[in-house]
């Protein structure tokens, strides 16, 4: 590799350098959408170059699915096969929710590496870098969902409505997109990428357990049931279960969409404020 680098040094061409330098024609600046899509493309390239990130993200749910289904499934639902039908929609939600933090992690990495400075000194619509990253992450959420669903199908998960499955994934992605804004705001104040991951895990891990992902809340003590009912993840899981088994849980979906709007309305402006005033 040193050799290769050495060769590259030698080939810096004076003539090519001079002819490449004076390039002053400035095309029309891209609009907000096109700038965002360009950043989305960047996020996709990152998935392509660093696919490990995705495997990390789905490693946990695979372990959870296998462990809960075969160790505890019989005890919880009578048989592992019956429990799987209950668990997969929940695991799907947990998987995607836990990887929402990566948007914030990546943003924080950009800042600590100095790339953010370059983006911020470009004459573009400033939120594009974050909106674009979130668009790219939606693809990541879709991929993670596909992996979990494939795993479920192999193990014997049999949803009743294909349309319901697709709608579920859309609903999960919309919710994950909204939650991501919390982590982008956190990503702008945290000192290191790792601390973003820690804080988000610290918040989201208990939230996914204090929900109906793994067991019906009715077996829990009363105070916990109350907490579970107010947990937005419970509503998401209920909505997803309903959709996958052929019903349309309007109440849960409405509750969720309102929650999404609230999250974005609060955290998107905070993120943008922090981004603009970042030192």
């Amino acid at each position: 590799m040193t050799d290769q680098a050495g060769k590259a040094h030698a080939t810096i061409a004076e003539g090519a350098l001079r002819s490449a330098l004076p390039y002053r024609a400035r095309p029309k600046r891209p609009n907000a959408l096109s700038a965002s899509l360009t950043f989305g493309w960047r996020a996709l390239l990152k998935i392509k170059h660093v696919p490990e990130q995705l495997f990390d993200a789905v490693g946990n749910p695979i372990i959870f699915t296998l462990m809960f289904t075969y160790l505890l499934g019989g005890a919880i639902a009578g048989s592992p096969g019956a429990y799987l039908q209950y668990l997969i929609p929940g695991i799907l939600v947990q998987t995607v929710i836990l990887i929402t933090a990566y948007t914030g992690v990546n943003l924080n990495t950009d800042i600590s590496k100095g790339v953010a400075d370059r983006f911020r000194s470009l004459p573009i619509w400033r939120p594009a870098v974050i909106v674009g990253a979130l668009l790219g992450d939606m693809v990541r959420y879709a991929l993670a969902s596909a992996i979990v669903l494939a795993l479920g199908l192999i193990l014997g998960f049999r949803p009743e409505s294909v349309v319901g499955v697709v709608l579920s994934v859309v609903l999960i992605i919309v919710f994950a997109f909204s939650v991501s804004w919390i982590w982008t705001a956190l990503g702008l104040v945290a000192r290191t990428p790792n601390s973003v991951l820690w804080v988000s895990t610290l918040i989201m891990f208990p939230l996914t357990f204090a929900s109906n992902i793994f067991v019906e809340p009715k077996t829990m003590p009363g105070w916990l049931q109350t907490a579970v009912i107010f947990n937005p993840i419970t509503h998401l899981v209920s909505a997803v279960r309903g959709l996958m088994y052929g019903t349309i849980p309007v109440g849960h979906i409405a509750w969720l969409l309102v929650g999404c709007v609230v999250l974005v309305v609060i955290f998107a402006p905070i993120t943008m404020y922090l981004y603009r005033s970042k030192k």
């Binding site: 990152k46 590496k113 790339v115 470009l122």
Partner: peptide
């Protein structure tokens, strides 16, 4: 160096060029 380390050299330059329109 303010480049995206995960991207290739060429992708880095295309990214900036696209952002400039």
């Amino acid at each position: 160096a303010s480049v995206d380390e995960d991207l290739t050299g060429k992708e880095n330059l295309i990214l900036i060029a696209r952002l400039l329109g």
